[in-house]
């Protein structure tokens, strides 16, 4: 198979989500069937995510703007053979905020008008992103990798495409480390997506995150404030080092999640974006 062939044969970005799903979403009125997934703004806002046009999430937006600047700046720095447009979001253990960071980073990046982002739920255990977006019953990444076709689903947020995890499979870790996964990422980056964000599982809770790190040109390592012990972080970073080589040259950035709002360097500016 030639380079780019997978993109044309397996990636289908089309409004295939049943209409019943829209009934669960609360927020802006549905403007039409041009997208498959509607980002549930109110639910996300309640859980602290960036939502468009609200003042409450201004601080979070500012915080993710800072992270986004670092990510965008790294796009020019290729780490070996890995594409810096593929961004892995991982952590030491579950519950530290990988999905929160991945989703918000994607939302923040889509604000830039010349960026298109594909957000992939690559967590074979938790399916956290899919659950948060309410698309757990859809075909997704693992179905596509197993059958050879993976469909991206458009959303009501412009320039944002989502690939849910799909149904659980026992061979999910192997699929994530397979060549198909590599080809899928390659096709995504070659078919118009500026960035691909992988919401993976925790490094110390399975092998899939370590496997995915081999495809990612950038890694966001999320540390839960007051949750993650230094020893575990060291252990996870050592594991990452053994997978992708020296950390200093691997475009790895640390993100401290769940700090107290009073501690945040970015202050509420009152602007809405």
């Amino acid at each position: 198979m030639r380079r780019g062939e997978l993109a044309t044969s397996t990636l289908l970005v089309a409004p295939s989500l049943p209409r019943r799903l829209f009934g669960r979403l609360v927020g802006r009125p549905v403007e039409g069937p041009q997208y498959a997934v509607r980002i549930p703004e109110i639910d996300l806002r309640r859980s602290g995510h960036i939502t468009t046009g609200t003042a409450e999430s201004a601080q979070t937006r500012e915080e993710f703007r800072a992270i986004k600047r670092n990510v965008v700046a790294n796009l020019a720095n290729a780490s070996g053979a890995r594409d810096p447009r593929v961004i892995l979001v991982t952590s030491t253990r579950p519950g530290e905020g990988k999905t929160f960071v991945a989703l918000n980073l994607a939302l923040s990046l889509t604000v830039d008008r010349d960026m298109s982002v594909t957000l992939i739920d690559a967590d074979p255990i938790d399916h956290g992103l899919s659950r948060r977006l309410g698309i757990t019953e859809e075909r997704g990444l693992f179905d596509g990798l197993g059958q050879g076709t993976t469909e991206g689903q458009s959303t009501n947020v412009s320039n944002l495409t989502v690939i849910p995890a799909g149904r659980s499979r026992s061979d999910a870790p192997e699929l994530l480390s397979s060549e198909r996964m590599g080809r899928l990422l390659e096709s995504l980056t070659n078919s118009g997506s500026s960035l691909v964000i992988l919401d993976s599982s925790a490094l110390l809770s399975g092998s899939s995150a370590a496997a995915l790190s081999g495809f990612a040109g950038q890694t966001l390592f999320v540390i839960g404030c007051r949750e993650t012990g230094r020893q575990l972080v060291d252990e996870a970073l050592t594991l990452l080092d053994s997978q992708i080589g020296p950390l200093e040259s691997a475009n790895i950035g640390l993100v401290l999640n769940k700090i107290s709002p009073d501690q945040s360097a970015a202050r509420f500016s009152g602007t809405t974006a």
Partner: peptide, 9 residues
Amino acid sequence: LPFYGAVSQ
């Protein structure tokens, strides 16, 4: 390692 930022709870 580079510190990209902190995110509020």
